[in-house]
Amino acid sequence: MTETDIETGTGTGRRPARLSARDLTLAYEDRTVVDGLDVDIPDGAVTVIVGPNACGKSTLLRALGRLLKPARGSVLLDGTELARIPTRAIARSLGLLPQSPVAPEAITVADLVSRGRQPHQRWWQQWSDADEHAVTEAMTRTDTAALAERSVDELSGGQRQRVWIAMALAQETDLLLLDEPTTYLDISHQVEVLDLCRRLNHERGRTVVAVLHDLNQAARYADHLIAMKSGRIVAQGAPSDIVTADLVRDVFGLESVVVPDPVTGSPLVVAGRPWGAGD
């Protein structure tokens, strides 16, 4: 953990982050979810956004991935407003896995993963060596090569999620946004998916931004943690610096004790307070 923190830093005093938002206001019809938010996503790090339900974390991620148009302000990719970049060009730098993607009926794993190559293909370039290489590697990394010929419909939840991640990987983007990639997965598959994100970052230097529900998983896997509440960023930084009982009370309204994770040493939030403490 600490090694990466030093290596990647968390954005301060270096060249501007590739992905950032300025004065970002996001709304669904009349309801404003995020109001005037500024954020820089540190390059080459794993950023995790946490917060209670309806705090705007998924909304923020959707805006960073141009799935949601800002009501005001802007999202900048390499200094240019997302709205000014052709969506296909964005897709070559920024990949995104939505919360509940729907696979075309009866599609095979290899076919779905190869759809990730779409932004690199033309009607007369349907399958290049680069495509073949990227898809093979994506399937190998996600351990889905053995499933290549299977239909996506018949896979288990964990396998399916790995296939979707493989599709996003095949896109070969420097930035990868994941919206609650562990939802609906059992604990072992959750760990599997998060380990994969970590490896992608470590081995390939990819910038990963994920929205997670589980604060402890977030603290364990993030280099940079963003805690949100009611559409605002309450705290951000390395988990070991910012995850405290005060923050948990402030963000989640929960009394807790924060101890070092026995496995990784990252902060571990245990709900409740010691017997006899307080009242």
Partner: peptide
């Protein structure tokens, strides 16, 4: 001919398609 190729992308959900750079 354009449709035959474009058709591939319509069977995906809106978010995934947008993420892949498809309007």
């Amino acid at each position: 001919c354009w449709a035959a190729r474009a058709q591939r992308t319509v069977s995906m959900d809106d978010d995934t398609a947008t993420a892949l750079g498809i309007r």
